[in-house]
Simulated scan of single mutants.
Amino acid sequence: MTDVTDPLDVPDPLDVTVRHPGAGTAVVTVAGDVDLHTAPTLRAHALAVVERGARHLVLDLARVDFVDSTGLSTLIVLAHATREAGGSLRLADVPGRLLRMVTMTGVSELLPVHPSVDHALAGRTAGPSD
């Protein structure tokens, strides 16, 4: 008898961690692909953080390899959720390929993109001296 793994039994390949550098602020670090299968995980984690009082979120995307349209939609949902809570969503350390997609789709017009988590926490975008 061959041991077959049910695809639903495979652990979620998206790793999401959260840290709170200050009151009302959370850095959500994402590692893996954000796609049709994993975007609900990111959304659930981030919305739970907002519900627990962190109105300002920074998504650290340095370890994200791929984002599809469902992932982009999730970013927009999270932006709306943080705004409704009186806060903000910022993207940090966005890999080049993803940055091109965020720019081409207009998502960068809705969400500030920062070169690092530190810049995002300080509310600074990249400038000539950065």
Rank of each mutant, 00 (worst) to 15 (best):
L57S: 07
L59D: 10
V28P: 11
D35V: 01
D35Q: 06
L72V: 08
D15S: 03
A39M: 10
H56R: 14
V50W: 07
G106I: 08
L78F: 04
D60S: 01
F66M: 09
S129D: 12
H20T: 15
S129W: 09
R90H: 14
V77K: 01
D35P: 01
S129V: 14
A62I: 09
V94N: 05
G123Y: 11
T25H: 12
P95A: 04
V117K: 01
P40W: 00
R55Y: 09
P40S: 02
V30M: 01
S88L: 10
L91S: 14
T25R: 12
T17P: 01
G87V: 10
T5M: 05
S129H: 15
M1W: 05
L98C: 08
E51S: 08
P40Y: 00
S129T: 15
V77A: 14
R83F: 09
L99D: 15
V10P: 04
S88Y: 06
R43F: 00
P128N: 02
D33R: 12
M104R: 10
M1S: 11
L99G: 11
L91C: 14
S129P: 00
V94F: 01
T38Q: 05
V102C: 12
T38P: 06
P112F: 10
H45D: 09
V27G: 10
S108N: 13
L42M: 11
H56S: 12
P11K: 04
L72E: 06
A48M: 01
P21E: 03
R19L: 07
R83N: 11
V102W: 11
L78E: 04
H119F: 12
G71T: 05
H56W: 04
L72N: 04
E51V: 03
A48R: 09
L47R: 10
D130Y: 06
R97L: 12
R100I: 07
P13A: 00
R97E: 08
S129E: 14
D60H: 05
L75S: 06
L36K: 00
T82M: 04
V64A: 02
D12R: 07
V94K: 03
P40C: 02
L111Q: 14
A23V: 13
L8E: 10
V64T: 13
H20P: 03
S69T: 14
R55A: 15
L42V: 05
P21Y: 01
A120K: 11
G24R: 11
L8K: 04
D118I: 08
V4G: 01
L91D: 11
G22P: 02
M1N: 10
